[in-house]
């Protein structure tokens, strides 16, 4: 693959993660557990969709195939999406939404902080802007981990289920492939494998505060970054893309 193809793929992965989690969170809008929480989670969704715009615009520019960020978001099929499986996990109950969010936020912040030192000026600039917002995201989701874990018997039990559900999807966050290796070698990307230990340490700290046990590693799932997604992803995509696909030339 050429240099710009790797760069396009790299930016697209970051964009797809943000877009898909933003879309998942956005479906809570109007259904949040309280008005305040509804607005707060929608804010996070909007932050993520803002990041997705920046990453996908850069991916589109790098690939040079005449597509823009909207074309990447709204006209690709599931097989062409490169997000990790964790972010496409269904919302479930609020414990599942929060656990998914926290596992991702904690990883996201480590990645963005590392990318602030990227040799690619655009990647460094987007990472710097996004890191500010994600600092708040991880604080918020971490607080909810503790509140729900160290809350009632009911919330604690639901958190345990949610953690066991989400855990098998966390390994994919740290898996390196040829694109990652190439980006690291060029000083553009970050070493995901090296972030695994700090991530585990941080997650363990929060789980301890939340009186929740650190999960044991079992079978781990992956494949999202290669375009192999879970069943529920096709429904997410259908909903997200339906308007853009039914009126392709429309502007608003």
């Amino acid at each position: 693959m050429s240099d710009t193809t790797d760069l396009a793929t790299y930016a697209m992965r970051l964009g797809d993660n943000a877009l898909v989690l933003g879309q998942r969170l956005a479906t809570w809008t109007g259904h949040g557990p309280s008005l305040e929480e509804d607005l707060a989670s929608t804010n996070v969704a909007l932050d993520l969709i803002g990041h997705a715009r920046l990453w996908l615009a850069y991916a589109a520019q790098c690939e040079g195939r005449g597509r823009d960020a909207d074309a990447l978001a709204f006209t690709r099929d599931a097989r062409a999406f490169t997000n990790v499986l964790l972010v496409e996990r269904p919302n479930g109950d609020y414990a599942q939404t929060i656990v998914r969010q926290f596992f991702f936020d904690a990883w996201h912040l480590l990645v963005l902080r590392a990318l602030c030192a990227s040799r690619d000026a655009r990647i460094a600039a987007i990472a710097e802007k996004a890191a500010l917002e994600v600092t708040y995201h991880v604080k918020r989701s971490g607080d909810w981990m503790i509140r729900l874990g160290d809350g009632t018997d009911e919330s604690h039990a639901r958190m345990r289920v949610a953690i066991d559900d989400a855990w098998p999807y966390t390994a994919e966050l740290f898996a390196m492939d040829a694109v990652d290796d190439a980006m690291v070698a060029r000083g553009i990307g970050c070493d995901l494998a090296a972030l695994h230990a700090p991530w585990r340490t941080y997650v363990e700290t929060v789980l301890t505060d939340a009186t929740l046990a650190f999960p044991t590693d079992g079978v781990m799932h992956g494949g999202g970054r290669a375009g192999v997604h879970t069943e529920s992803f096709s429904y997410l995509l259908a909903e997200m893309q339906s308007v853009a696909r039914s009126v392709p030339a429309e502007r608003w």
């Binding site: 008005l35 305040e36 929480e37 607005l39 707060a40 708040y136 604080k139 918020r140 607080d143 509140r147």
Partner: peptide
């Protein structure tokens, strides 16, 4: 005004509800 369980949550909610 807003609803929150404690001061930390109140400040975060205030940020999200009133300073967007």
């Amino acid at each position: 005004s807003l609803h929150a369980a404690d001061a930390t949550m109140a400040l975060q909610n205030a940020r999200d509800v009133y300073t967007r």
